[in-house]
């Protein structure tokens, strides 16, 4: 069996792809509802970047798995228990502050992850990562600018941004969980053990939160389960909407 056909690598690619597919879909829910036209377009751009990355990652997952599933089959014909995204990606979009804080937390994580994955021993994954790094850099810049604007803005915007930080913080720990899959791909040089990204993530995120006059909540309990297919109730609802066209008209093209 070639090294890239390890089942752990397929699971790993599903994690990478599902994070971006689910978050991209959540962001796309803003389309037509953004606070102003410019930001509506900006959010849709980020959503398209994430869905584009997910397409490439799920395609690679399907090829590596060699079970005849392409990226569309993986996106539209898996149920929520088969999804491997972190829970933070699937939470409902909330208000604009919630969406921005979540995007900021994920984008910093994604940039660190993709920077490391540029050195993957799998050339295709390294190539996808190189493309994603450019996109993630802009996502960090855009969301960080908004976190500072909202946090260091009016009383109302500060309160909403702080509420979002408080609500989302307990979902950040899952991004850095390590398990047999993370260790397997890391030791094979295919992937990066997510736990190694925690320290730089905290440094960068806490720096921006300070500038935004937002407070880092005291760490208590961290939510988990998404990496093993144990999701919140929200993912099922989201998937039913995302998948209904593909499932109602299997094989349809346009």
């Amino acid at each position: 069996m070639p090294i890239s056909a390890q089942p752990g690598f397929v699971s790993y690619l599903l994690r990478l792809g599902d994070d971006r597919l689910v978050l991209g879909h959540r962001l796309s829910e803003w389309c037509g509802h953004g606070p102003i036209l410019e930001e509506d377009i900006a959010l849709a751009n980020v959503a398209l970047d994430l869905v584009g990355e997910a397409t490439l990652l799920l395609k690679l997952a399907g090829e590596t798995e060699s079970a005849g599933r392409n990226e569309d089959a993986l996106a539209y014909f898996r149920d929520s228990t088969e999804y491997r995204n972190a829970l933070i990606a699937e939470l409902p979009k909330g208000d604009f502050g919630f969406t921005i804080v979540r995007q900021f937390f994920f984008s910093v994580f994604s940039l660190l992850q993709m920077q490391a994955l540029q050195r993957s021993s799998n050339a295709e994954l390294a190539g996808i990562a190189a493309k994603a790094v450019k996109e993630a850099k802009y996502h960090v810049r855009h969301s960080a600018q908004w976190v500072v604007t909202l946090g260091d803005g009016t009383e109302e915007s500060h309160a909403r941004a702080q509420a979002a930080v408080d609500e989302l913080w307990r979902y950040t720990g899952e991004l850095f969980l390590t398990d047999a899959v993370e260790q397997e791909v890391a030791s094979a040089g295919l992937g990066v053990d997510a736990s190694t990204l925690a320290e730089p993530w905290h440094a960068q995120v806490e720096e921006i939160l300070r500038r935004a006059t937002l407070t880092v909540p005291p760490v208590s309990y961290m939510q988990r389960g998404g990496r093993d297919g144990r999701h919140t109730e929200h993912l099922g609802h989201m998937l039913s909407e995302m998948q209904i066209v593909a499932r109602s008209h299997p094989g349809a093209t346009w």
Partner: peptide
């Protein structure tokens, strides 16, 4: 574009006109 700061104006210009 509309924006509250120069940096935001630059980003909005990128997203609206240069994507």
């Amino acid at each position: 574009v509309h924006a509250v700061s120069a940096e935001q104006a630059l980003q909005n210009a990128r997203d609206v006109y240069a994507r």
